[in-house]
Amino acid sequence: MLRIHFTDRDLALTRIAPAADMSFELSLSLHLLATRRPESRLGQWREQLGRRWKPRSAMLFDLFAASDLPEFLTVRPDGRDTAEATADGLDRAGGDYLRGLGRLRRLTPFARDLASGDRRSRVLLGDLTAEYQSAAITPYWGQIDSLVAAEHRYRTRQLATRGLDEVLATLHPAARWQRPVLSLPMSPCLTELPLAGRGLLLQPAVFAKSLVIAGFEHPEEQPVLIYPTPAGRPLLMDDQAGPPPALTTLLGRTRAAALTTLAAGGPLSTSDLATALGIAPATASQHASILADAGLTTKQRQGGTVTHHITLLGEVLLKGSVEAAAESAARLLVGEKD
């Protein structure tokens, strides 16, 4: 059991993360795979990842233990700087982590080379991390960030109406809050954690299976308590085939994704389209209006709800040919008759 001790200053400094943390999501998702922990909400994600999986990505499992996360796996949103960022993270925290991992179990040759500072292994680690990010995290990032933002909005309202005591008491079914101590079922290697005026960052995470504490070793840094996003909310939607690169160049990434989403799962309301794209409803409405003005979609209003439909012209543009779009339209007509 881990007991986190708060002072009045810690309570004042405790906050809820407003957005998802890509590095944590990457490490947590790898931890689920490395430890073979079942998670029914991740069935689609596992299946889709299997189609993009590169066998050498399994080398990253060498860095995981049942109760530890390699926090030095530092990634960047666009993926291009992930290799360099991971190497920098290895310099800051990797040595201590790998030595600790070596006390838990025998290190693999790859992990031993990293611990010894081997340059080629460091380069390989960066490449592996970037590859895994592009396959497992980046395609889902809009959805991940949207789910974490929804949790942030919920907790912010809870904080404003009922106070931090209510937030801490309801953070996780296994958490116990009795001011000024938050008790959590965690690794026995750490039993007492005085925050000592640093406060605590509460970080919702889509790939978290349980509670995780991070960043507590450094007295100058604010510790992070990672907790799972609520299980009752949808986790990851199926990632439909992305729009053709030429269409993205023509329309822009978000509008091309909107057109693809409407073709695959439409018609959709503005709020449903926003959720699918991981953007705000107002932004989704703006993009949908531009598509409608171009004749690629239509809008229908019923009461306060606006529903968006792809047009035949939109199908032509998306499919790349009149023939393919006509076939798609014919299938839709047959479906409506049935």
Rank of each mutant, 00 (worst) to 15 (best):
G265P: 00
Q203K: 11
M186P: 04
R120N: 08
R15D: 01
L60H: 10
F64G: 09
T270E: 13
Q222R: 15
F110P: 02
S146A: 14
G278D: 11
S67C: 05
A66V: 01
G117K: 14
G100L: 06
T191R: 15
E315Q: 15
I290T: 12
S121H: 06
P243L: 07
Q178F: 02
G117N: 11
P244I: 02
S29C: 07
Y140Q: 08
G252Y: 14
M237G: 10
G102D: 14
A17H: 08
T283R: 15
A325W: 12
H152E: 07
R331C: 11
R36I: 00
P243R: 14
P180K: 04
A150Q: 08
Y140N: 08
P18A: 11
R112I: 00
G142T: 02
L26A: 01
F61C: 09
A135D: 15
L11E: 11
Q158F: 02
A111L: 04
D96A: 15
E336H: 10
P180R: 05
A205K: 05
A284P: 01
R9L: 12
A231V: 05
D272S: 14
G314R: 05
R155M: 07
A130E: 14
D239R: 15
E192V: 03
I279C: 06
Y140G: 01
D293C: 00
L107G: 06
Q240N: 02
S269H: 10
V224P: 05
L125R: 10
P267G: 05
L182S: 07
Y154S: 14
V167Q: 06
L60E: 05
A241S: 07
S146N: 09
A246L: 10
A263S: 12
F64D: 06
G100E: 14
A330G: 01
R119E: 14
T254Y: 09
R105Q: 14
E192I: 03
R92H: 15
G94R: 07
G117C: 10
I226P: 10
Q203N: 13
R179H: 13
S29H: 07
T82M: 06
M1S: 01
E166L: 01
A66Q: 10
L73N: 06
V75N: 13
L273G: 03
T229C: 15
K319H: 15
L128Q: 04
Y154V: 03
T254K: 12
S187L: 04
A263T: 11
P18N: 09
D10W: 04
W45G: 00
S271F: 03
A205V: 01
H287T: 03
E166P: 00
S183A: 15
L296C: 04
I16F: 02
A326T: 11
I4H: 07
G335K: 09
V123W: 12
L200G: 00
R176Q: 04
R105E: 10
Y132V: 07
Y97E: 01
A174V: 01
R255Y: 02
E39R: 09
K319D: 09
E84G: 00
A329F: 08
Q48W: 10
D8S: 12
H172Y: 12
I16P: 02
A274H: 07
L247Y: 06
D8T: 09
P70G: 10
P244R: 13
L318Y: 15
P245Q: 04
D91K: 08
F6P: 00
D145R: 13
R3W: 01
A20R: 08
L202A: 07
G265K: 14
T129C: 10
